[in-house]
Design a protein around this nucleic acid. Structure first.
Lengths: 224, 224
DNA sequence: GACCGTACATTGCGGCTGCATTGCGGAGCG
DNA sequence: CGCTCCGCAATGCAGCCGCAATGTACGGTC
């Protein structure tokens, strides 16, 4: 675990470095905002401990630049200015946490652990075929990031076919997926939905084909 | 933005509920760990405010169960036990932040904003579509620097749509985001809010359109 | 290979459902 | 006591969806 410490006071920096090393962390210590920017560009740190009062400006100024990298690196601001307004300002500038000096090193370590524990990223289940993507959680289809506005029945058909993509879906299975017990279908309503869906997928060049299999059902596969 | 508040002291709970509502949030308030578990299973909250001293045990016991869900929902622990060891214990149990009573509500709100920003890092603090800007930290919408004064429900609708801008939001998701368990909606109240919001966005030429997708939900996109 | 029956594909049409909009009254708040 | 916000209900309307008619492809049979 490699940490970037931005702190110009030698005494504080020494104490923190020692404590962090005692917890098996690797500390890069810089004294100024300029050095901090250079260090962070190496992209090797898992967190930043940031003092506010630095020789070349307020540490808060660094936060937007860190956030611009969009890697979500945690930032804990350390400062002698512990007034309520300062704490709120620090948090609202984008810091993940804010500690007023003096503080116990143990608390800093605990907050550091808390901030590092955050999930790396939530993985949503996303089905992909051709240029088509289907977000199962939100039940929406998209092509190249552009959402397809599909009516309910067509969406149900597409979802069912996608979940069994590349394999045949019995006509009866499709009907069960699209209609409930109350709905009584006496015609080829399902076929019309498939047809309309095919047209829309073709219009946006989704890169998928829905094959009808005579006497059995349907099958969705990548084009060609 | 919907928050789960786990707090058995009526006074504290009332104060927090009021403050959060003042910041246009939807609050579900429960009194016990058991109720909290049930509420969280609905999977509609963006954050949890957790008291430690509860009728059926220490609030910290809830944290592992929340973490087991692996959705990374932020947890802020609130407690009268403000000793250093307690704070460290709280953070190491998996809390994202820890506040000792008494605390200023403003600081809680700031810390809440900070932890809510997190799954972000990817999602910036300022959302933009068309001429519309939305400041996630302060939860206010503006057009060309001019703030839109929107009522609570409309703001919640707008925020929810903006967070999934360009993608469909299920009608049920919207309802969950805008109303809490206590609210009982029997009519098309949601539609009226969408409608009024549309009108206001059009009046200021926000450059966004809210599409209704029949039978599915809504979708916010840039005009044209 | 020609023929025919059947199942699927496609398209137009009308009913109906579900959404959009508006006015109204009550509730909350200052 | 004024205000605004909010839920509710009524009305109008658009688009979905089921239906049926027509066209088409497939497969089986001779």
């Amino acid at each position: 675990m490699r940490i970037l410490l931005v702190e110009d006071e030698p005494e504080m920096a020494g104490a923190l470095s020692g404590a962090l090393k005692g917890y098996d962390m690797v500390v890069d210590h810089v004294l100024t905002l300029a050095q901090a920017e250079e260090a962070i560009s190496a992209d090797v740190h898992r967190a930043v401990l940031l003092d506010r009062q630095l020789p070349d400006g307020d540490g808060l100024g660094l936060i937007p630049k860190l956030r611009a990298r969009a890697d979500g690196i945690p930032i804990i601001v350390l400062t002698a200015r512990g007034e309520l307004a300062d704490r709120i300002a620090g948090l609202d500038h984008g810091a993940d946490d804010y500690l007023a000096k003096p503080f116990a090193v143990e608390e800093l370590l605990a907050r550091l652990r808390a901030v590092l524990r955050r999930p790396a990223g939530l993985q949503c289940d996303l089905l992909r075929v051709g240029r088509l993507a289907f977000d199962c959680a939100h039940r929406e289809a998209s092509v190249e990031g552009r959402t397809l506005e599909l009516p309910r029945r067509e969406l149900l058909v597409l979802e069912t076919l996608l979940r069994r993509m590349g394999r045949t879906v019995l006509r009866s299975s499709l009907e069960e997926a699209v209609y409930n017990f109350d709905d009584e279908i006496q015609s080829n309503a399902l076929d019309t939905h498939v047809s309309r869906l095919r047209r829309k997928l073709a219009e946006v060049q989704a890169g998928v084909e829905i094959h009808g299999i005579r006497g059995v059902g349907y099958l969705l596969k990548q084009a060609q």
